[in-house]
Amino acid sequence: MAAATDDAGDSNEMIRVVSSDGEHFEMPEAAANLSLVLRHMIEDDCADAAGIPLAVVAAKPLAKIVDYCTKHAAKSSGLTIEEAEELKRFDAEFIEVDTDMLYDLLVAADFMGVEGLSKLAVQRTADLIKGKTPEQNRETFGIVNDFTPEEEEEICKENEWAFQITKPPSRLC
């Protein structure tokens, strides 16, 4: 499942990485450099034919990360407005994933130090939270409501001042 493009950066050397479940991936060095961890490994000459093992990243999120890095490395410098727009569209489509994959991407991007992807996934999750009722958020993220009804009522009262000037929330208050 190698994701290689000829136009990715000035280096044509391919970097091999190995997922936690033993699957091998290849990406151009310029793409690997977007990951802080991989960049340091490459600088320390740890990138050999056997591949860099990524112990906490499974094959599925790693495949997505390789795609992301390859795309972004290919368009890293001298972007025209059209290319920037295209990259933005790519990001928007790329991050349209289910919650499980989003979690995997968040953890993997954080572990590998891919800053752009971290920000993208964090922003996507924040967008999922905003504009939802507490109950919807609990459902989305599997959170247990550990408030007593009295405590819930109290927070509602605390929030009342804000909802007097905006639209009232759909539940409780």
Binding site: I129, P134, N159, L172
Partner: peptide, 30 residues
Amino acid sequence: LIPGLPDEISLQILTRMPRMGYLNAKMVSR
């Protein structure tokens, strides 16, 4: 904060929310 995610990442997520959303987010859990 979010089951399955380290709290450091969950905190980053909360910082990326609009402040107005905090009123509802406060009611999710303790």
